[in-house]
Design a binder for these strands. Sequence first.
DNA 1: GTGGTCTAGACCACG
DNA 2: GTGGTCTAGACCACC
Lengths: 118, 118, 118, 118
Amino acid sequence: MEYEKNTPIYVQIIYELKRRISVGELSAGSKLPSVRDLAEELKVNPNTIVRVYQELEREGVTETRRGMGTFVADNEQFDVSSMKKAFISQLIDEFVQKALQTGVPKAEILELVTKALN
Amino acid sequence: MEYEKNTPIYVQIIYELKRRISVGELSAGSKLPSVRDLAEELKVNPNTIVRVYQELEREGVTETRRGMGTFVADNEQFDVSSMKKAFISQLIDEFVQKALQTGVPKAEILELVTKALN
Amino acid sequence: MEYEKNTPIYVQIIYELKRRISVGELSAGSKLPSVRDLAEELKVNPNTIVRVYQELEREGVTETRRGMGTFVADNEQFDVSSMKKAFISQLIDEFVQKALQTGVPKAEILELVTKALN
Amino acid sequence: MEYEKNTPIYVQIIYELKRRISVGELSAGSKLPSVRDLAEELKVNPNTIVRVYQELEREGVTETRRGMGTFVADNEQFDVSSMKKAFISQLIDEFVQKALQTGVPKAEILELVTKALN
DNA sequence: GTGGTCTAGACCACG
DNA sequence: GTGGTCTAGACCACC
């Protein structure tokens, strides 16, 4: 995993794990790697992973069981596809806000996005 | 001027000044307000304006003449609209990269962006 | 048995066993289930039960007889209700300390506790 | 400030700051000490204070302004007295839950709390 | 083994 | 100056 410079590493890892969950690579109830293992895998300090897991739990994406590990939430209320939508919506809102601030006309923005998507 | 929370103030002011220039509110060769005046006008720390002017000069948007102040560059090569496009392109690239990473189909992304723009 | 999230499982099991003893479900001198059996019954890691039994023995609530198992102590001095009181006193002291620290008047605290108890 | 052993330091500091706010020692809009200053005052590592401030902001109790510091939230919606009530309620709920789990009768619990309060 | 907390100290962006 | 992130490494409670 490569890290983008302007986004905190822990945020990027959160994105990545959410992506894995929403895609089904990690299914509800399955165990995430231990803090130490994931830290090693991602060449990152364990504290950074601790923060990632705490954030994910705070958001209800995962569950932590004492001494047992961190698991993808098995919550009925937790709907993966809605999470995915919320996630992309947030992404889009941030982008649109910044884009409009530049004063570039909407039509042009749309055109450029279309191009970039292909 | 209202400041958006997720973007550094100095970046937002840069946008604003570029906007004023591209719109013609500030024409080529005209003098920009002094650091102190602009700081006061925008209710911002003078250091922030210093940084804005340094950044603008680095980009060739303005010129600083010793003892006289800061002026909009009189440079033929300086093309406001292309500058804006370069900036928005970067914005779009970052966004598209993240958006595609989520696995949401391109068509849907485009649709959501269109909605968000209006 | 359901586990409450904010208290260690082993503590909750200790409560539960003490409860069974004080209620008479487990009488003085009777044999407690083996570590494995209790672990299975309570859907818990055997290590957790080991700790529970160690703790109970340390408190004098149970006795371990080599090769025979763990038994409810046959100790005259062992007074379940006083034990419970000691525990709840500690609980109350901690609570009262924190509650008073908030500056809420005593009368109000008492009223709220009364409500919460019912 | 003395730290109680069984509660994380950062939680105790959060309590303390909330208390100061709810009591009016820190009024809405006022600046909290800088991370480094508070860390020194409380003989604690700066990272611990960072965590405290982040948690408080997440809860809406404070606002962080870039490069300027941390301030008591000036939010109309933020009602100090309701915060105080929410805080004490949480404290009481946790206590009552644990207390009832011990099997001690309600009347007795209430009696003991009354005693402890005086 | 697991996650949670804390210290120490570095580097960064922002105002 | 401010807060934010990250690393390194320690110690703890829990299972």
